[in-house]
Amino acid sequence: MKQPVIHPIVPPNAGGPAANTRLRALRSRIGRLFREMRKHKHAYALITPYFLIFGTFTVFPVLMSLCLSFTSFNMLEPPKWVGWSNYARLFVQDDVFLIALKNTLLFALITGPISYMACFLFAWLINELPPKLRALLTLILYAPSISGNTYLIWQTLFASDSYGYANSFLIKWGVIMEPIQWLQDPRFVLGILILVQLWLSLGTSFLAFIAGLQNVDRTLYEAGAIDGIRNRWQELWFITLPAMRPQLLFGAVIQITLAFSVAEISIYMIGFPSVDYAAHTIVTHLVDYGSIRYEMGYASAIATVLFTMMLCTNLLTRKLLGKVGE
């Protein structure tokens, strides 16, 4: 008996050459990747300790809370999947979130750029002083950030009775007749918050800029002077700023993070919740849901929205910083 010949539906060679080359290309790409990786085994050895810890204590929790933002989670029962409903609720139902969003954007728009520039300006001014004097001045300018909650002295400055410094000064000079309730009046609260944040602004980026200015090759200035740079502003724009681009990027990320995640000052100085939600920010909103209402899923959704906002701002800033020194 003859075995029937079974014809394969697709002849074995149809499209063969093309598929084969694709496969071969892929294989050689993977091969090259492996060779590259083996060539750089020292690099991997150097990064491994950091990235093991970073992965465990930073990446994993962040991924987990990204997942939690799609659930309803009260920290007692296991999380329940709810899809996009946290986000929908955030933008459609939650009026207070919209107030917080408005406050945060206004706050970030004012304090972000100003404090960023202040950090650089003061680092740059101090840079020309001799090391000892520079260290002392740096300490004084950094003092508000070094000592925990010193911003609370602003409370006595803006105390609501006529003994508060601001009130007694204004009454003495006849500007106002009766004390203003600075920290309770919705008209002033956000302004005071911005003022205090600016006072606190010479922090991390400021120190990074000071160190960065020391890292600029001094012979560049000499060369610049020969090339016809006439004053300190030209020197700043054409030499110092371009040479410091890595630090400027670093400072930008830090200032964006600080400007968008203000909460502590608002909670401890103005109060929580604040009158008419006048000092309510995205992060205070998050604290409200996270630690008072135990709605961790919702809080995670708020955090994710904030994260997205910061990422976009960061992309924009990078574009702007690319123009420096042109």
Binding site: F51, T58, V253
Partner: peptide, 24 residues
């Protein structure tokens, strides 16, 4: 990729990662 991961994680509010962190 690793570097971008680091920069991005800097912008995530640490407040919500407390619970996962405690668990880890």
């Amino acid at each position: 990729m690793l570097f971008n991961l680091v920069v991005m994680s800097l912008m995530f509010t640490a407040y919500v990662t407390q619970v996962p962190n405690y668990m880890t």
